[in-house]
Amino acid sequence: MIAEEPPAETAEHAARLAIRKTYKLFIGGAFPRSESGRSYPVRSASGDFMANAALASRKDARDAVRAARSAFAKWSGATAYNRGQILYRIAEMLEGRRAQFIDEVAAASGDGVSAASEVDAAIDRWVWYAGWSDKIAQVHGAANPVAGPYFNLSTPEPTGVVAIVAPAESSLLGLVSVVAPAIVPGNTVVVVASEERPLPAVTLTEVLATSDLPGGVVNLLTGRVAEIAPWLASHMDVDALDLAGVRDAGLATDLEIAAAENLKRVLRPVPASSDWAADPDVQRMLTFMEMKTAWHPKGI
């Protein structure tokens, strides 16, 4: 429906004025504006005004962390099968709005040629990670042959609340490539969208909201990375930090130092030149999982 409608700016014979979308945050399953009342203009690759995105504040970041923490017990306690079904459902919803996302990604990057393949790869990435939900524990867990009469089993579990700075360049595929591996094992996330290309991320939250993903599992903030990320890195109820999209090396170091205060698990920045279309491996999932080893005596 929406995808069929060309943007108003490019419509040559628009008989009516198009309805624009207000791009808002996504926190706890709802779509609030920034509590600060601030926004910032988002421009296309060619410099045209596209929309005003919410300029998230410290308070928004804290609200997002609270929403993520609240959602953790239910999401991590859901069966792996159920989480896999929901991730697959996200792929279905995304496929249904494929054309809209191609337009948005192309507008953000200015590259109309690769936008379609980026969207296709993003859809396929959800499918790939959906399948991991009930396999990662089998592949990465272990039954350990200890030297004694004990049952001994190692099982990976989600770390908790993961704060993510999404890749700056790849507005959709990059975002999906960092969010999907974090949530499939049962983590909940607060993700800061690409600062200059936030609109596909906001539209993706509409997909998440209609895919049976419980509110609060993914929370999206738009705004300045340098303003929001320090609050997330120093937040004592955040368990892990993914710096994928941080471009400023000094900021990345400061964030890692702040993260040490409660020993967050940290993924360091991914080089800007990295190819998000390449096949992922399991590393991103494993970084945000904890190994639990349970012992029990054997005896009659």
């Binding site: 272990a142 004694g148 001994n152 904890e290 190994m291 080893t293």
Partner: peptide
């Protein structure tokens, strides 16, 4: 917690992973 001992405690083995959650 990274290690859970049920009906036993402080058992260690080279084949058994050891380490923590959180801080």
């Amino acid at each position: 917690a990274g290690v859970v001992w049920a009906n036993t405690f402080n058992k260690f083995d080279p084949a058994s992973p050891f380490g923590g959650y959180k801080e």
